[in-house]
Amino acid sequence: KKRQCKVLFEYIPQNEDELELKVGDIIDINEEVEEGWWSGTLNNKLGLFPSNFVKELEVTD
C-alpha cells in the first residue's frame, strides 16, 4: 500500500530538489529522509517536502 498525505499549507521550494506545495495537493510518500523532511512524488515530480506542512491520510483498501 502506498502512503499518501494531503497538503495543509502552501510551500515555496527553497532548493531545486524540493516540491512546491499547494493546499489540497495529494502527495505519494516515498520515505522519511531526515527529521521533518519526507521524500515524495507530486505531479510526476520526485522531491523533498516539509512533513509539518502535510497530514498523512488514512490508508484504505
Rank of each mutant, 00 (worst) to 15 (best):
W38Q: 04
N15M: 03
L57Q: 05
E31D: 13
E16I: 04
I27K: 00
L48R: 15
K1D: 15
W37S: 02
N43L: 05
G47H: 02
N52S: 13
K1N: 15
K45T: 05
S39Q: 09
G40S: 00
D61W: 02
E10A: 07
V54I: 11
G47I: 04
L8Q: 06
I12D: 08
W37V: 09
V23C: 05
D28H: 11
E20F: 14
G40I: 00
F49Y: 08
N43C: 10
C5P: 00
F49T: 00
V54H: 01
L21I: 06
V7A: 12
V7W: 00
W37T: 07
S51I: 10
K2E: 15
N44M: 07
P50N: 12
E56P: 09
K55R: 13
W38R: 04
P50V: 00
L8N: 06
L42S: 14
S51C: 08
E16L: 06
L48C: 11
E56G: 06
V59I: 12
F53G: 05
D61C: 04
W37M: 09
E31T: 12
P13M: 01
V59Q: 10
E34M: 12
I29L: 09
P13V: 00
K22S: 08
F53R: 13
E58W: 14
R3S: 07
V59P: 11
P50C: 01
K55T: 10
Y11V: 02
Q4H: 05
Y11C: 01
F9I: 15
Q4R: 15
I29V: 14
E56N: 03
N43S: 07
W37H: 03
E58N: 12
K45S: 03
G40D: 05
P13A: 04
K1I: 09
E31L: 07
N30W: 03
Q14V: 07
I26H: 06
E32A: 06
E20P: 12
T60N: 10
D61L: 08
L48E: 04
Q14R: 10
N15R: 15
F49W: 00
G36L: 08
I12H: 10
G24P: 01
T60F: 10
T41G: 04
C5F: 07
E58S: 12
Y11L: 00
I12A: 13
P50L: 03
R3E: 06
V23K: 14
F9L: 15
W38F: 09
K6W: 11
E35Y: 06
F9K: 15
N15D: 12
T60R: 07
E10M: 04
V59E: 15
I29R: 03
N52M: 11
K55W: 06
N30K: 15
I27Q: 04
E34C: 13
I12W: 08
P50S: 05
L46I: 15
N43P: 01
G24L: 01
V33C: 01
E34P: 02
L42V: 12
V23R: 12
N44R: 08
L19S: 01
W38N: 03
L8P: 04
W37N: 05
N52H: 07
V33Q: 04
K6M: 15
W38M: 09
E34W: 07
F53A: 13
L8D: 08
E35S: 15
I29N: 06
P50Q: 08
Q14T: 14
D28S: 07
D28W: 08
E58H: 10
W38P: 01
I12T: 14
E58C: 12
L48K: 15
Q14H: 05
F49V: 04
N43E: 07
L48H: 08
L19E: 03
E35G: 07
E16S: 14
L46G: 08
V23L: 07
S39N: 09
Y11D: 05
K22R: 09
Y11T: 05
P50F: 04
N44Q: 10
W38I: 12
D25K: 11
I27L: 06
W38A: 02
K55S: 09
K22W: 05
Q14W: 01
L42P: 02
L19Q: 05
F9G: 08
E31V: 07
S39A: 07
E16K: 06
E35V: 11
K6N: 05
E35Q: 11
L8R: 07
D61H: 15
Q4V: 14
L48S: 05
E35M: 10
L19N: 03
E10I: 01
Y11S: 04
Q4S: 15
N44S: 09
E16P: 10
I29M: 14
K55V: 11
F9R: 15
L21G: 07
I27N: 04
N43K: 04
G47A: 09
E18K: 06
V33R: 14
K55A: 13
P50T: 07
I12K: 12
K22V: 06
K45Q: 14
V23M: 07
L42E: 00
L48I: 13
K55I: 12
D17A: 11
Q14A: 10
L21E: 05
Y11K: 06
I26G: 00
D28Q: 05
K2L: 06
V59K: 08
D17G: 12
I12N: 15
K22G: 10
P13S: 05
L48Y: 12
F49I: 00
R3A: 03
G40L: 00
E35R: 11
K45V: 04
L57H: 10
N43T: 01
V23T: 11
E18M: 05
V54M: 03
I29H: 05
K6R: 14
F49C: 00
L19P: 01
W37Y: 05
Q4N: 11
F49R: 00
L46W: 13
S39W: 12
T41E: 12
L48N: 10
E16Q: 13
E16Y: 02
N44T: 03
G24V: 03
W38G: 04
E34T: 13
V33N: 15
W38E: 00
I26E: 05
F53Y: 13
D25L: 01
K55C: 11
N15Q: 09
N30C: 09
E18H: 07
D28C: 09
T41N: 13
E32G: 10
I29P: 03
F53W: 04
L48G: 03
N15T: 11
D28F: 07
L46Y: 13
E10T: 09
D25C: 03
L42D: 09
L46R: 14
K55M: 13
V23Q: 12
E31I: 11
G36T: 04
E31K: 14
S51M: 11
L42K: 08
F53E: 01
N44E: 03
N30Q: 12
K6I: 15
F9E: 15
E10W: 00
D28A: 04
S51K: 11
L8Y: 08
N52W: 05
T41C: 04
L8I: 14
D17T: 08
Q14N: 07
I29K: 03
T41Q: 12
V33K: 09
F53N: 11
W37L: 07
E35I: 05
D28R: 05
E56S: 07
V54T: 09
E31Q: 09
V7R: 10
T41D: 12
G47Q: 02
L46M: 13
K45L: 03
I27E: 00
E34Y: 11
D61F: 03
L42I: 09
L19K: 02
I29C: 04
Y11Q: 00
G36P: 00
K45P: 00
G36M: 10
P50G: 02
T60K: 13
K45C: 12
D25V: 02
L42Q: 06
G40W: 03
G47R: 02
Q4A: 14
L48Q: 08
E16F: 01
E10C: 09
E58I: 09
E31C: 06
G47E: 07
T60G: 11
G47Y: 06
E58Q: 15
F49L: 02
I26C: 02
N43H: 13
C5K: 03
S51A: 14
N30D: 11
F49A: 02
D17W: 08
E32I: 08
V59M: 09
E34L: 03
E32S: 12
K45E: 05
C5M: 06
S39Y: 09
G47W: 02
E10S: 14
W37D: 06
Y11P: 05
T60C: 10
I12V: 09
E32V: 11
I29Y: 01
N44K: 13
